[in-house]
Design a protein around this nucleic acid. Structure first.
Lengths: 252, 252
DNA sequence: AAATGGCACTTGGTAGACAGTCTACCAAGT
DNA sequence: ACTTGGTAGACTGTCTACCAAGTGCCATTT
């Protein structure tokens, strides 16, 4: 949930203890709501986010919104300009590359560690996810396939048993998901074949192979993104053009 | 500075433009102050941090303190318990391992990318840092050596040209520095020899070698930490034992 | 057409208030 | 001796109101 800390819900205390749901702080809900709105495009890239506006929109006061915005800023979803406000982040062209490079490092290491300790149940779940994902892909449910993809990658990082890899890879994955969804349709089928090979390597405990497949997998994703980009957007698409619709001064 | 975003101070605009220093937001200063106090031990592990107390201590109001605390929570320096407050994080025993495993992945990838594009000036700076660091180590200035070590690692990640690696590795490094400082004395000399070899590999543009040396380097650090730990604390050292010293019921 | 001045808007920070919750403690009951 | 119930204090989470300072835009002036 948080970035690094040992999330209180991630801790598996002695089996049998079930913490009752603690009332989620508003800032958390606001944070979730905003990321969701950014990912699904309700809040377009470059859009000017005004605290009171969001507060009204979500039915809370400025405070939780501020706190959520700062977290969003820290994680790169929005850019905070002092004295002006927050803008939904507009990705630079080289950003996806860097994101995927980081992901390659994080997740290939995760895959290696997962293969080093291939828990039976987890591997079964992986196989299940592969099957489901390929099915969704084939049936054209792109959104579902992307979500399943995220779930699979998430599970693999968790199998690494490394809290930090989980957190970092989680952040990166969510960002990738934001940029990547339009690419998924073309990339899909091959991607799921690779997943299947990857799961096999993990299940066999073949560290090097698992790490390498994951690395290549990410690399293929990167290539697919670029090909699509080159083909689809030869003309500059100006994403940012949301003039804040200033009110006239005189009339009202 | 922040976690992922393109830090506004990291941007090197067209040469010649010199942004006047903008008054740093208070929350930033508070954040810095608190991490410093945590690292140097002024705020002991497990200590309960009270907002108004810190606010008074730093001469600001609650709000900036809250914002700083939330960031500290996101980055794992403190644990925030809803309705109760923040406690300075108490590291689990396996945490250093996980931290160093993550660091191995992040920095060995960084070293690889740095070697792929070994900027002349940066390499010169690296060599300089190696010399300085070894000197400090020899002269017994541990604090300085640790700082120089951080600087060297930081520069290498920056040479990767990958904003995300820089951010993540930066976070991890700061955390490592927190746990690691007591280990530095014993580890020092060998560490700086490895640095020298690493810099040579980068300067030669030998990707694989650079990545591997960095990985082994981190692994050695991990081993050193464990040896020290095993030697210095054979008896369980309960860091958190603030049993509330239950008062006897009868006598007083 | 470009510089200038002014204005509206937004954030950053402060202060105070209040409900909900967490902890500790105490007392009575079993 | 152990559990239960109750009480009190402390602290957070959230809201409201407010002010100073900074930012960007517009209209006017040059």
């Amino acid at each position: 949930m948080t970035t690094i800390s040992a999330g209180p819900d991630a801790t598996s205390d002695s089996p049998g203890v079930r913490h009752v749901k603690r009332p989620t702080p508003l800032r958390e809900s606001v944070y979730e709501a905003l990321t969701e709105m950014i990912i699904d495009g309700t809040l377009e890239r470059g859009r000017h986010l005004v605290e009171v506006e969001l507060a009204g929109m979500l039915g809370v006061s400025r405070q939780p919104v501020r706190e959520a915005l700062q977290r969003l800023n820290n994680e790169g979803w929005v850019d905070l300009r002092p004295g002006f406000g927050a803008m939904v982040h507009v990705p630079a062209e080289d950003e996806v590359d860097q994101l995927l490079a980081a992901r390659a490092a994080l997740e290939s290491e995760s895959a290696r560690l997962a293969a080093r300790n291939p828990d039976k149940d987890a591997v079964a779940k992986l196989k299940e996810l592969c099957k489901v994902g390929a099915g969704l892909q084939e049936s054209g449910d792109i959104d579902g396939a992307v979500r399943t993809n995220a779930e699979l990658h998430g599970l693999i990082t968790e199998m690494s048993g490394n809290r930090f890899l989980v957190d970092f890879a989680g952040q990166v994955d969510r960002r990738v998901r934001w940029y990547y969804t339009p690419v998924a349709p073309v990339r899909g089928a091959a991607s799921w074949r690779e997943h299947t090979r990857l799961v096999k390597a993990i299940s066999d405990g073949d560290e090097d192979k698992a790490a390498q497949i994951m690395r290549e997998h990410t690399e293929h994703t990167r290539k697919a993104y670029h090909e699509l980009q080159a083909g689809a957007a030869p003309e500059q698409t100006p994403v940012v053009e949301k003039k804040p619709t200033r009110r006239r001064r005189t009339t009202d």
